[in-house]
Simulated assay, not measured.
Amino acid sequence: MNQPLSPSERRREIVNLVMARKSISLEDLVAQLGVSRMTIHRDLDLLEERGLLRKERGGATAESSLLFESNFHYRLQNENAEKRALARAARALVEPGSVIMVDDSTTTLLLAEELETIEFVTVITNSLPVCELLRGRSNVQLILTGGSYNDTLQAFYGLICEQSLGKLRADWAFLSASSVIGLSLYHQDQEVVRMKRALMAAAERKALLLTHSKFKARALNHFGELSEFDRVFIDARLDEPTRQKLRQADIAFELV
């Protein structure tokens, strides 16, 4: 007979199930884990408080909402081919000796992977995965902003992060967004918004990397306009009506 899971093991299994299925019902969790509905409710409340999933009527989901940004590891699994194409297109902007800033998105993490062939580059970031990827690379001078660490987003934020960025300058800043509504960019978290604005202010030029799904997503906090970016890369699955709207608004963008 199998031993019952400890509370921490059970919650870890809940997160794994939600990430694997995107959404799961309360009844399925009860059946899978063999505990009461009340226990699952308490687990979901705690996991939502930690930012690992979003509790919804009748179950839980890993999908983002106006207020909730999905877990970093969940986002890393999605649209990998599209993000990889965007990263390769953006990589062409980085010249040997450049100083670049990279935000905390999963798309720009893939850009960091593309830097291996550049002779020398300085990378400034608030992203822990970018730091872990690039540390020890002989061709990279790595500068981490510091700040308050957010485990759900795998990055650093807050006053220290923003002040660090305010004292630095870069040739390029590479960013993504949670949502594009009209011609405006949005994110769920105000601290992330402030970090992105600090990145944008510190760079001579700015590049934006967007998957087509961002034009269907929604988030609460405005942080910028498409027109503020020198280069905008969007994956080729962007629908034709949205392409036409961007062209009519004179937004220069490149499909990759």
Rank of each mutant, 00 (worst) to 15 (best):
N2G: 10
N2E: 12
S6C: 10
S6L: 15
E9K: 14
R10I: 02
R12Q: 15
E13I: 05
E13F: 13
N16K: 15
L17M: 15
M19P: 09
A20Q: 14
R21C: 08
S25V: 03
S25L: 04
L26A: 14
E27K: 13
L29T: 00
A31F: 13
A31C: 10
L33P: 14
L33T: 05
S36W: 12
S36N: 00
T39C: 03
T39N: 11
L44E: 01
D45W: 02
L46P: 01
L46R: 08
L52F: 00
L53P: 04
K55T: 13
K55Q: 13
A60L: 04
E63G: 01
E63L: 13
S65V: 06
L67D: 13
F68M: 02
F68G: 10
N71I: 11
R75Y: 01
L76I: 00
N80P: 03
L86G: 02
A87W: 01
A89K: 13
A90R: 01
R91G: 04
L93W: 05
V94H: 00
E95S: 11
P96V: 02
P96K: 00
G97L: 06
S98E: 07
I100W: 12
M101P: 07
M101D: 10
D103R: 05
T108L: 06
L109G: 11
L110T: 04
A112K: 00
E116M: 01
T117R: 12
E119M: 04
V123F: 05
I124W: 15
T125Y: 10
N126S: 13
S127F: 03
L128T: 08
V130W: 09
N139E: 01
N139Q: 00
G147T: 06
G147M: 05
G147L: 03
G147R: 02
S148W: 10
S148T: 12
N150T: 14
T152R: 14
L153C: 04
Q154S: 14
G158S: 10
I160P: 03
C161L: 08
C161H: 06
E162Y: 05
S164R: 07
L165M: 06
G166I: 00
G166W: 00
L168P: 03
W172P: 09
A173Y: 08
F174V: 01
S176V: 14
S178E: 15
V180A: 04
V180I: 11
G182R: 06
Y186W: 10
Y186Q: 13
E191H: 09
E191T: 12
E191Q: 15
V192M: 11
V193A: 07
V193Q: 05
R194M: 13
M195F: 12
L199Q: 08
L199G: 09
A201V: 02
A202C: 04
A203L: 11
E204R: 14
L208Q: 12
L208Y: 08
H212M: 03
S213E: 13
R218H: 15
A219W: 03
L220S: 08
N221G: 04
N221D: 12
N221F: 15
H222K: 13
F223C: 09
E225F: 07
E225A: 14
E228A: 15
R231D: 10
V232D: 07
D235R: 02
A236R: 15
A236P: 07
R237M: 07
L238A: 06
L238E: 01
D239Q: 12
P241L: 07
T242E: 15
R243V: 10
R243N: 12
Q248Y: 14
Q248R: 12
A249W: 05
A249Y: 08
D250K: 07
D250P: 03
A252W: 02
V256F: 05
